[in-house]
Amino acid sequence: MTGTTWVLQWKDAQGTASLGLLQERLLRGLRASLKGRWSLDTRLFRSPHNYLELQNIKNRGTASDKSMYLVVRGQGAARRQFIVMASNRVVVEAEPEMESILLRLKNLWTPRQSARIEGYSYEGDDWVIHIGNMMVGTSYKGLVIEINYLPCSNPDQTYGLMRELLMMILPADAQIDVNSGVDYRRAGLDPHCMTDRHTAYQYVHLFTQSSLL
């Protein structure tokens, strides 16, 4: 999917009730059409410290972060997978079998926490909005909103428009984590032309800055 994407969290959402509220405002207020179900899964993998890292801990009290996130977007034929390294310097699209491969390589990458977002997709004239309730393990962590504005891929030119769209569907007192401060350059991504890799990176940024994963 092309265009500009903004991923944020409604922290004090109330599960099914909040999901229903947004659906009503999208379908009636913005005259959106329901596209179908939508989901996103993220797994955190960690690699054991090797000998050099143990020496690093002993000598300097620190170690490099051997963490990796697997972001799986969509369902069925539309399912796509992305790998984001914890160093935030690599974001790549992975082959469909990557998840099963990682789960078999437990001596190299150990699965730790996981997050799952389940909800629905809605479509307007020039935008698509995904909304879904988020579970981290067995804990409910609010509602995630992904806004995609299709005509333009430069986030600098679309932030104001998407913010207005967000204000139309959210309650005025909603506690929002706007997922700010995403540095695409750190991951080698063009900050002025978004792709699906940028979206995967936004999800990992949201999870890490909020200490969700």
Rank of each mutant, 00 (worst) to 15 (best):
M1A: 11
G3Q: 00
G3R: 02
T4H: 01
T5N: 08
T5R: 10
T5H: 13
L8D: 01
Q9V: 08
W10I: 01
W10S: 00
D12E: 07
Q14S: 07
G15Q: 05
T16Y: 05
A17Q: 04
A17E: 07
S18Y: 01
S18F: 00
L19A: 05
L19C: 00
G20P: 03
G20R: 02
L21E: 10
Q23N: 12
E24K: 08
E24S: 06
R25Q: 03
R25H: 03
R28D: 10
R31D: 01
R31K: 14
G36D: 05
S39P: 07
S39R: 12
R43F: 13
R43Y: 10
P48V: 07
N50G: 10
L54Y: 06
K58S: 06
K58W: 14
R60H: 12
R60E: 12
S64L: 13
D65I: 11
D65G: 11
K66T: 11
K66V: 09
S67K: 09
M68T: 11
Y69K: 03
Y69C: 05
G74E: 03
G76T: 07
A77S: 11
A78S: 15
A78R: 14
A78M: 09
R80V: 11
Q81K: 08
Q81L: 14
Q81P: 02
F82E: 00
S87P: 03
N88E: 13
R89C: 15
E93R: 13
A94K: 08
E95F: 10
E95C: 11
M98W: 06
S100D: 14
L102D: 02
L105E: 10
K106W: 10
K106L: 12
L108P: 08
W109Y: 15
W109I: 02
W109K: 07
P111G: 14
R112S: 12
Q113Y: 09
S114Y: 12
I117T: 08
S121H: 10
Y122L: 04
G124S: 14
D125I: 10
D125V: 12
D125A: 11
D126V: 10
I129L: 11
I129H: 01
G132R: 00
G132C: 00
N133E: 14
M134W: 04
M134H: 02
M135S: 03
V136E: 00
T138D: 13
T138H: 15
Y140K: 03
G142L: 04
I145S: 03
I145L: 15
I147M: 09
N148Q: 14
C152K: 15
C152T: 12
S153T: 04
N154L: 00
P155W: 04
D156F: 13
Q157T: 02
Q157V: 00
T158D: 01
T158N: 04
G160R: 10
E164Y: 09
L165R: 09
L166C: 07
L166K: 06
L166D: 03
L166H: 09
L166A: 12
L166S: 10
M167H: 15
M168G: 05
I169T: 02
G181S: 10
D183F: 02
G188S: 03
G188R: 00
P191F: 08
H192F: 14
H192P: 01
D196Y: 07
D196Q: 15
R197Q: 13
H198A: 02
T199Q: 14
T199I: 06
T199K: 09
Q202C: 13
Y203V: 14
V204Q: 04
V204S: 04
F207D: 06
F207M: 15
T208A: 07
T208E: 15
L213R: 04
L213V: 12
L213I: 13
